[in-house]
Computed example of a mutant assay.
Amino acid sequence: MEPIISPWLIYFASRADAVGILFLIVAVAAFAICLIGFDDLTKNGFKLFISIGIISVILTVLTPTTETVYTMMVANELTSDNVQAIGKTGKDVIDYITDQIDKVVNDKEENKK
């Protein structure tokens, strides 16, 4: 039997928060270089670091959280027939399934420790 949601998607979803933090660190570093090393930077170097900082801030804002990625994966597999069979609203079903995925992922991480 083939899984509904790929285990690889669950793995990459669990890393979404770390990717957002990485973009934020890059943005802070780029802006810090511009502020601290402004005298040593050429005009092109300054523009480069400002561009990197702005792009990193945009990517930080656009990177979804782990819970959002889980919700998107579940919503992709959810049909109106599934919701009617359970008898709850779509949001209730998505929240329940997201909680179950999170529980499975967290249980596996605790077992490794």
Rank of each mutant, 00 (worst) to 15 (best):
M1Y: 03
P7H: 06
L9W: 13
I10F: 11
I10W: 07
I10Q: 07
Y11P: 00
Y11I: 02
A13C: 06
S14Q: 08
S14K: 08
S14G: 11
R15K: 12
A16Q: 02
D17I: 02
D17F: 06
I21Y: 05
L22F: 13
L22N: 15
F23G: 06
L24V: 07
L24D: 14
A27K: 08
A29I: 15
A30C: 05
A30E: 02
F31V: 03
F31E: 01
F31W: 05
I33Y: 01
C34N: 14
C34I: 12
L35C: 14
G37Y: 13
D39F: 07
D39H: 09
L41Q: 02
L41Y: 00
L41I: 01
T42E: 02
K43E: 04
K43R: 12
F46M: 09
K47Q: 07
F49T: 00
F49P: 01
I50N: 04
I52P: 02
I52V: 14
G53E: 03
G53M: 04
I55Q: 06
I55T: 07
V57Q: 01
V57T: 09
L59A: 09
T63F: 04
T63D: 02
T66C: 06
T66Y: 02
T68M: 12
V69Q: 13
V69N: 08
V69K: 09
Y70C: 02
M72K: 15
V74M: 03
V74E: 01
E77T: 10
L78D: 03
L78R: 04
S80L: 10
D81N: 04
N82G: 05
Q84Y: 06
I86A: 04
I86E: 09
I86S: 03
G87H: 01
G87R: 01
K88P: 01
K88V: 14
T89Y: 15
T89I: 10
G90M: 14
K91A: 12
K91F: 06
D92P: 10
D92E: 15
D92S: 11
V93F: 14
I97N: 05
I97P: 04
Q100K: 12
D102T: 09
D102M: 08
K103S: 09
V104K: 15
N106W: 15
D107S: 14
K108T: 07
E109R: 15
E109G: 01
E109L: 08
E110K: 15
E110A: 11
N111L: 12
N111W: 14
N111K: 15
K113D: 07
K113T: 05
